[in-house]
Structures are given as C-alpha cells and as structure tokens.
C-alpha cells in the first residue's frame, strides 16, 4: 500500500515538473497588452524623456501626468533632470527649458537648472528704467469743488462744471540708459581663450532692521556671443558654484566678438577681440576675461 503512494507521488512530481517546464519555458503566457511601467528600463527612460519633450512642445501638463502615471517617482525625477540638463546643454529655447523645469519641479525634482528655469528668477525682466508719466498734484493745489463767495474779491473761485485739472509735469524725454553696465573686467592669460560673464544687480536688503545694499547674481539670463563667423549662447546660473549670474564661453583666438544680453540685437554690451598675451614667457597663452556686468535698474 505504501509503495503505491510512492508511485503516485513520483508521478505527481514528474507531472508537475513537466507542466512547469512547459508553461514557464516552452509556452509561457505572452503579454501583448502591456503598459509603460512594464517596459524595459531603457524604454521606460525614453518614454519619460519623450513625455517631457512633448510637454515642452505642447504644454499639456494634464496629459504629461497621465503619460507618467504608475511610473516610479524616483525614476521620473531622475530622467526629467537628465532631460533638462541635456536640453540646456543643447541650447533649447527658453520656453522649452522652463516647461521642462516646471515638470521636473512638479515631480519634486531639484537641481540648479530646475531652480534657475522653474524658479521666480526666470520671470525677472531685463531691468529697464521707466518713468512715471504724471506726477500727482499736491493736495494743497487741488481746487475746491465748490464755489466760494466771500467778501474778499481776490479769492479764487472755480466753476463747479469744469473738471479739476491735475497738475501734470511731463518729463523731458531722455534716452534710457543701457540695462547693464560693465562694473569690472578681470583679464588673465590662459592656454585657451575664455570669456566669463557675471551678471549682477545691486539690491537693498533689510538685515536686523537695517537696510543694506547687496550685490546678487542674476540667474536665467540668456547671453549671446556673436563672432565674425560663429555664434554661441548661454544661460547664467548653471554653475552655481561660480555664482548665480555666471556663464562662460569658449572663444577662438584672434577673433572679434560682440556680447548681447537677452536678444542678439541692438548695441552690444561689450565688444572683445581675443589676442595672444605678450611677455608671459610660458608659450602660447591667450587673453581671457571675466566681465562683471551690473544691472543699471532694479532687477
């Protein structure tokens, strides 16, 4: 009787093994209708990356969230940061960078690029001084709306039907100063010529009840460097260790360049020509600059 059960158990074991070999190895369940979280890691990363780029293009945040549904938040954050960094390095338009940064921030990602492009700094406008068109009349000059009839014949009376005329001082139109001025130029000699820019602004801060002037870096500003046969652009703030207003360019020896801020039009902020350093005695070295620009208005 005992031997019979052994044979039955052996049969079950063999059958089970054969069944599992067949169902797991030879003819496994095939999945046709999978969804993005089940894709291989590189395809998932590409899905997230494409979703970010699609959002940069169409700005449809709700759809971007739906596309990223059920993917691991950490994976999303990591891929969004990489996509943003790649977009910054490729010089994508500012609007695309801002959307990428906004999406990354939406998923809790944080990096210098996210802070620069999704933060409030990006809405800082170029400091263009403006003038108030009118100066309000002093209270004493406001005409009385009611007539007065007094015994003094010199009393000024006004007609109640006429509207009061404000005391307007029209400013004399004068050309506005450029939004930035060169505050300092530091020259050095390097094996490869470089141009570094630091955009700054002077602001008033209150420290322990006292107002103080402080110089801050201006991140998220687009800089253009137009050469005789090439053009380059960069954004300030991507190397926070060098300062929030810092950006730099590689330049060619013996070339002239015009530097613009914001758009490469109008009068350049600075014009430079790279030339060899003389008298260094260390072989070929080239003039390189760090130009510190200060906003002339409030940032």
């Amino acid at each position: 009787m005992k031997a019979s059960w052994v044979w039955l158990a052996v049969g079950v074991a063999l059958g089970l093994a054969a069944g599992l070999i067949y169902t797991w190895g030879i003819q496994p369940v095939e999945f046709y209708d999978t969804y993005p979280p089940l894709m291989r890691e590189d395809f998932r990363a590409d899905w997230i990356r494409m979703t970010a780029l699609a959002y940069a293009y169409d700005g449809d945040l709700e759809r971007a969230h739906l596309r990223l549904q059920r993917l691991a938040p950490e994976e999303i954050r990591q891929e969004l940061l990489q996509t943003l960094d790649a977009a910054v390095a490729s010089g994508r338009p500012l609007s695309a960078l801002q959307r990428l940064a906004t999406l990354a921030q939406d998923y809790g990602a944080d990096s210098p690029a996210v802070r620069v492009y999704a933060g409030e700094e990006t809405v800082i406008l170029l400091s263009t001084p403006t003038r108030a068109p009118t100066v309000p009349p002093p209270a004493a000059a406001a005409p009385s709306p009611t007539s007065t009839a007094t015994a003094t014949p010199l009393t000024v009376t006004t007609t109640p039907t006429l509207p009061p005329i404000p005391h307007v001082i029209l400013p004399t139109p004068t050309p506005l100063p450029p939004p930035y001025r060169i505050s300092q130029t530091i020259e050095s000699c390097l094996p490869e010529p470089r141009l570094a820019i630091s955009l700054t602004a002077s602001v008033t801060v209150t420290v322990r009840g006292r107002e103080q002037r402080q110089t801050i870096g201006l991140p998220g500003k687009e800089l253009w460097l137009l050469g005789t046969d090439d053009a380059d652009h960069a954004f300030t703030g991507l190397r926070p260790a060098q300062g929030l207003g810092y950006a730099d360019f590689s330049v060619k020896p013996e070339h002239s360049y015009n530097l613009y801020i914001g758009t490469p039009t109008g009068a350049p902020v600075a014009t430079l020509k790279t030339a060899a350093c003389t008298g260094t005695g260390e072989g070929d070295r080239w003039q390189s600059w760090l130009i510190i620009l200060q906003a002339t208005g409030s940032p």
């Binding site: 044979w7 039955l8 158990a9 052996v10 049969g11 079950v12 074991a13 063999l14 059958g15 089970l16 093994a17 054969a18 069944g19 599992l20 070999i21 067949y22 169902t23 797991w24 496994p28 369940v29 999945f31 999978t34 089940l38 894709m39 291989r40 890691e41 395809f43 899905w47």
Partner: peptide
C-alpha cells in the same frame, strides 16, 4: 500521478504564477 502533476503544473504556470514580464518593449 503524472496527469495530476501535469494539471497542477499548467494551473500554476499559466494561472497562478505565470511568467511575469517586466522587460517588455514598446
């Protein structure tokens, strides 16, 4: 025994613990 085992194998392999696909493609 073989038939019972085979049936159990199919049940587990296709129904209860099917092959899980994590690395699918688009």
């Amino acid at each position: 025994g073989l038939l019972v085992g085979l049936g159990l194998g199919f049940l587990f392999g296709w129904g209860l613990w099917p092959v899980q696909y994590h690395d699918t493609t688009p």
